[in-house]
Design a protein around this nucleic acid. Structure first.
Lengths: 302, 302
DNA sequence: ACATCATCATCGGAAAAATCGATCATGGAC
DNA sequence: GTCCATGATCGATTTTTCCGATGATGATGT
């Protein structure tokens, strides 16, 4: 049984003749005849009763009419369903460097696995810059640690980052927050960085003014400097976890109120891309898995 | 999209690999690869994400898994449905000569159209003989004008025959029933004939004893003799209607109580043939059409 | 009665598709 | 590094599908 044979059969029934069906299907009459015969053979049943020139449906044939219609309909639905699940084009996604480094690799891989046709354009910037880019339409979506105007933006909570103080293993800087005033604080170079702002607010509330500040363009730089004993920094624990030489660093928690920072996927309410919903699904699923500690397929290498 | 391609796809998903699917389907690995590629091409969609050697379903692929299952299931149902509607074998049907001549041609043609594989073995005999044959198992079913024992037989009412008196056009025999005593009465040769019995009862009730009786083996004989002025006979109007030279005959009604005779399809309760149900359906439908006067496809030739 | 038309079946060859076997490419395991 | 498992690719072969021509059959028109 073949879908094309069913179509042929349906055409013969609809037009009431093999010749007319052949014309309708732009095929030779002999082809239609063969096809019907083959269908009858494969079903082991006579579909038409031939008396002279005219064809009449047999009981089996009448049964098949119904099922053929259903099968072809389902085939059409299948094509449509598969088509609808196929997203094409590109997706411009922005994220904070920290998120891009620690959180995104897995869900983005998953997304690409599910939608190989989508070209994901990932840019990193500060939270404020990202929100501005989404607003400007330069980005389709961004993952930020900012709270945004919910009238213009749609904001889907994703990960809760926990900020921790890090410094070289054994460094005196972590013993008490006040010690930070004596040393160098390593910060991300952009003013729009949500973590840097959080750090600034915390220090200010405690009337701590660091002796020196060093700006870095990447977390690798910050970690390298911290590990070398240059100073201390406030970083998300998730980023620290993907830092290869994290054994060279000491970590110190800070009060949860200051430490916890919600990140969210932010999109313009006016922009509705079907692809975006798929990406959002991947991210939410991953965030949920991270919260539950059961990220499937996660490979922990020795 | 092809059902075999869907099976292949399903096998690949089930076994988790093209090679294993090929083994399962007893096909070469390259064939499966081609088939999947062709399926992807025909759907215009990437079903698997190839990273290195392993295959992962894309979102489109996952959608197809569901639909492929449904399609193959429906295909199986189709095969089953068509098979179930296919009846094979032979059917031994008995009928009174009158019914066989006047009523059966159309519904039997319809039945044969619907079930070309069934060999219908039609025998004519008297009502009593037919019932005996059904009882003996020589016949699968019979159409008779008898009332039968409903504990052993199943009886489905079909046609109501109307018996009429016929004789040569202008014959005096039809003027009054009593005239029959003066002439020759033409009867069917079997004692078991329901019509003949009805005639006998009627004449007896009126204390009419025909001068002569002639037995015939067929209605053609009776009609020919009647038309030739040999005598009168009591025949079903339906048979008269299919007699070509009916213009040579005069017809006279008799009281409905005597004239009307119900025929029925009789089968043994212990015998259940699926084919028989189909035949019964054809006969009932035809009988209903005759009652309603709307027998479809009936061709009245000029 | 005869020719004509419409219809479907059959046949042989051509075109297309599916399959196979062998080989290559790639990434992981030892 | 070498093996091993896995798919992709290629050319040859087999199978399937299609076409065009021809034949058979019954209805229609003259």
């Amino acid at each position: 049984m073949d879908l094309r044979a069913l179509e042929t059969f349906q055409a013969v029934v609809a037009t009431g003749g093999i010749g007319r069906a052949a014309a309708k299907l732009h095929r030779a009459q002999s082809s239609v005849t063969s096809r019907i015969h083959q269908l009858e053979l494969s079903l082991g049943v006579q579909l038409f009763h031939r008396e002279g020139q005219r064809l009449h449906l047999t009981a089996s044939g009448e049964a098949l009419v119904d099922y053929a219609g259903r099968m072809l309909e389902l085939a059409e639905q299948t094509r449509a369903a598969v088509r609808d699940n196929e997203a094409v084009g590109q997706l411009r996604l922005g994220a904070m460097e920290s998120v891009a480094a620690s959180r995104l690799p897995y869900p983005l891989a998953e997304f690409h696995r599910q939608h190989p046709q989508i070209v994901v354009n990932l840019q990193t910037a500060s939270s404020r810059g990202l929100v501005a880019d989404v607003q400007a339409g330069t980005l389709d979506a961004a993952i930020v640690g900012e709270s945004v105007d919910t009238t213009r933006f749609r904001s889907v909570p994703l990960y809760v980052e926990e900020l921790v103080l890090v410094a070289a293993r054994g460094s005196a800087l972590l013993r008490e927050p006040k010690q930070l005033a004596e040393g160098t604080v390593l910060v991300y170079h952009s003013e729009g960085c949500a973590y840097r702002r959080r750090l600034g607010q915390w220090l200010e509330a405690q009337h701590i003014v660091p002796a020196r500040m060093l700006e870095f363009a990447s977390y690798h730089g910050i970690f390298a400097a911290a590990a070398a004993g240059v100073g201390a920094s406030l970083v998300p624990r998730s980023v620290l976890e993907v830092f290869p030489q994290r054994d060279a660093l000491s970590v110190r928690d800070i009060p949860p109120r200051v430490a916890r920072l919600q990140t969210a996927l932010v999109t313009l309410r006016t922009r509705h891309l079907p692809v975006l919903a798929k990406l959002e699904a991947c991210l939410r699923e991953d965030a949920a898995a991270v919260r539950g500690g059961t990220r499937r397929g996660k490979r922990t290498r020795g």
